[in-house]
Design a binder for these strands. Structure first.
Lengths: 141, 141
DNA sequence: CCGGATCCGTTTCGATACTG
DNA sequence: CAGTATCGAAACGGATCCGG
């Protein structure tokens, strides 16, 4: 047993609380891949351009499941596969991700399409609603 | 040389961009300490409850300065001291921090006062404006 | 005293090879 | 397909020392 839970109990400061669950290099990228790119299986995450190692991916998926941000199910059509989905708690990270994207777009060079940034910026709440709606309709499968 | 810059160049995805500058255990806590608790000197950060090591603190302050999130000045009254302040880019992290705080408050037990959460939640934009305003008036010293 | 650099043991991360 | 096992690399953290 190597990649087990790390229960570093700092304070209950809200920032700390989030850092404990998502404060590593990969967890947030996995959430992004699910929320914005619709990735849902182990191999889709593996081949997602960022080259995460298999043990790290495995560990982070377990952790995200443990803290209730994602859930794991068997594929209903292909019994060999697992499907990872965001829970409500996970989808609720959308406002934060949107703010991250907007901040990065304002202050650094990013590859986000300007028209998307424009849309997010003009009406954040509507954009978040759209993410939630997209999620609801697509996750029925 | 141990604690030098890590220029891991991933992609220009906005999420990655932020992770590269704030994606470690401490940087965001330092920003929080400045923004919400008004901490401004090396020793105020050191004794801020979370027990950061001196070498790590020193390294993170340099990094945050390098990426333009904070700036360092000599104290005008005590020449031995340095004052660290958020730049505009740093203060602009406020919307993101507010969303982090709100998410944590909704889904985990935190020590944030309920009335503050209430206020943030009811009108995020006004709250962010208030943070900016507080910052402008207090940083004249 | 203040800010910070250096040394060094410990913990965690991560790339690769391998497996049920 | 979805993971473990291994092992070197990097980050962390405590103690200590140093210049002003």
């Amino acid at each position: 047993m190597k990649e087990t839970e790390t229960s570093t109990h700092r304070s209950a400061c809200p920032i700390n609380v989030l850092l404990e669950t998502l404060g590593d290099t990969w967890s947030l990228l996995i959430v992004r891949d699910m929320m914005f790119f619709g990735r849902r299986t182990y191999n889709e995450f593996l081949n997602a351009g960022e080259k995460i190692a298999t043990n790290i991916l495995s560990n982070r998926l377990h952790r995200l499941e443990t803290v209730g941000i994602i859930e794991k199910r068997r594929d209903s059509t292909d019994a060999r596969k697992y499907i990872y989905r965001l829970t409500d708690k996970g989808i609720d990270l959308a406002p934060m991700l949107v703010e991250i994207i907007l901040w990065s777009a304002r202050h650094e060079k990013t590859d986000a399409p300007p028209e998307v940034i424009e849309e997010m910026s003009a009406n954040r709440d509507a954009y978040v609603s759209k993410i939630r709606e997209n999620w609801r309709t697509s996750s029925q499968s």
